[in-house]
């Protein structure tokens, strides 16, 4: 028996689902802090930038803590997705996590939505 289909990547740090062309990502961990785990997370996130014009929403609703190392991985992902003509949006950030993005002015880099549905709908709408 032959199988030309690629084996789908295995994810430990994130969970994925798809909604009308948008990939929705949830983190497994509440605390995104361990450097080794963040390296793995970075590798898993990069698989989301494969393909043409990837449309990705990252749902932070489970996340209670995020370190600067993790933010660096998000920046790498954002750049890769943008280079491929896609878009990345973040949603459902706890106030403390949102504050981290504000302090570091990364809310100028990332499109951040309060509600995941709004982030997803924004990517499903025709882009200008």
């Amino acid at each position: 028996m032959t199988d030309n289909a690629q084996t789908p990547p295995h994810y430990d740090c994130i969970q994925l689902r798809h909604d009308q062309g948008v990939t929705i990502v949830n983190f497994v961990d509440e605390r995104i802090a361990d450097p080794g785990r963040i390296e793995q997370l970075g590798q898993e996130l990069l698989t989301l930038s494969n393909g043409q014009r990837p449309q990705v929403v990252i749902d932070f609703s489970r996340v209670r803590f995020v370190s600067s190392l993790a933010i660096n991985k998000l920046l790498v992902l954002e750049k890769r997705i943008r280079q491929r003509g896609g878009q990345l949006r973040l949603a459902e950030l706890e106030p403390e996590v949102q504050e981290v993005f504000g302090i570091t002015r990364l809310n100028d880099v990332f499109q951040i939505h309060e509600a995941r549905q709004d982030a997803v709908a924004g990517l499903q709408s025709p882009q200008p």
């Binding site: 370190s67 600067s68 920046l75 570091t104 100028d108």
Partner: peptide, 10 residues
């Protein structure tokens, strides 16, 4: 803003 240095200190 997009560089990965100095964010932790900030």
């Amino acid at each position: 803003v997009c560089r990965d240095c100095g964010r932790g200190i900030a």
